[in-house]
Amino acid sequence: MRELVYYVAVSLDGFIAGPNGEFDAFLVEGDHMDAINDRFADTIPTDAAAALGIRQERTEFDTVLMGWNTYAIGGTPSPYRHLRQIVFSRTRTAEAENLEVTAEDPRAVVQRLKNEDGAAIWLCGGGELAATLADEIDRLVLKRQPLLFGAGIPLFSDRPYRPERFEPVDTTAFRTGVVVSELIRRREG
C-alpha cells in the first residue's frame, strides 16, 4: 500500500506560508539544499529541476496533491508535470499536462490512490487540505526553518483538538539552522 507523505517547509511557529501565501522567506540556499534535492528531487518543480540539472526519476513520489491556492502559486499550468498532479477545488478548473482538477472528496481520492501501485503520494499543501487529510497521512517530513512568521497559513488549518502520535524516524540538523524531521504515524495494534 502506498503512503501519503506530508512533505513541507514550516516555520518555527508552525506556518507553511505567510498570510497571503508568501513563502519567499524560506531558506533555499545552504547546506540543507543538497541533501533535500538528492532525496526529494521529485518535489522540485519540473522546470527548476531541469535548469539545475537534477534528475527526477519518480522513485520517492509519483503523485502530488495540492489545494487550489498551492497550485496557483506554482505560476505555471503544470508545475510538477513529471508527476501525476491532483488539485482539489470545488469552483475552479484547469487543463495541463499530467494535471487533474477535482471537486471529489480528498479522503476518497487518497484512499483510492493508496490502493494503486506506485511510489508514495506527496501532499504538497496547503493547510486546509492537510487538515482534511490528517487521518490519511502516514509520514511527515518537515523542513523546519529557523524563522518566525507570526501569522500565515498553518501546517494544519482549523483542525479540531485530537492528539495523534507520530514516531520519529530521522532528524538532520544543518548549519543553516534548517532541521529536517521525518516521522511516521503510530498505528495502534
Rank of each mutant, 00 (worst) to 15 (best):
P106Q: 03
P160M: 00
A119E: 12
V101M: 05
P79K: 14
I137H: 05
I54N: 10
R185F: 10
A25Y: 12
E136K: 02
G152N: 05
T91D: 08
P146W: 06
E100T: 15
R39E: 14
L183S: 14
E100P: 00
E104S: 11
G21Q: 05
I16Q: 03
L133I: 03
G75V: 09
R144W: 08
L4S: 06
R175Y: 07
T102L: 07
D158M: 01
Q111F: 05
A9R: 11
K143D: 10
E128R: 10
Y80L: 11
L83D: 13
T63D: 01
F40R: 04
I73E: 06
A25W: 15
P77Q: 05
F166T: 04
I36L: 14
N20P: 01
Y7V: 09
S78E: 14
R162I: 01
F156G: 02
E22L: 09
E3G: 13
E97P: 00
F61W: 04
R107L: 11
D135N: 12
C124K: 04
R175W: 08
Q111V: 00
G126C: 02
D62V: 10
G152E: 07
L4N: 06
G152Y: 04
K114A: 05
D24S: 15
I121L: 07
R165S: 10
M66W: 01
A119M: 11
F156Q: 03
Y71H: 00
I73H: 06
I36S: 12
D42M: 06
G177Y: 09
E95D: 13
R58G: 00
I86A: 05
L129S: 02
S157L: 02
R107A: 14
V178W: 03
S181C: 05
E136Q: 14
H82F: 14
V64F: 02
F40D: 09
E167Y: 00
Y80I: 09
G30Y: 09
W122F: 04
T172N: 04
G127K: 06
T171G: 02
V110L: 09
E95R: 15
A41V: 13
A48R: 04
V110A: 04
T76M: 01
D24L: 05
S89T: 01
V178C: 06
A119V: 10
T91C: 01
L155H: 10
L4F: 08
V87F: 02
S78C: 04
H32Q: 13
M1W: 10
V8P: 12
L142S: 08
V109F: 10
R55M: 14
A134P: 03
N69S: 11
D117G: 15
D117T: 12
D47W: 08
A130T: 04
R139C: 07
E182Q: 12
L142G: 06
T43R: 12
P77D: 08
F88N: 02
T43Q: 13
R165I: 12
T59I: 10
I153Y: 02
I36R: 13
A17K: 10
D42V: 02
A9D: 04
Y71V: 01
V101G: 03
A96G: 13
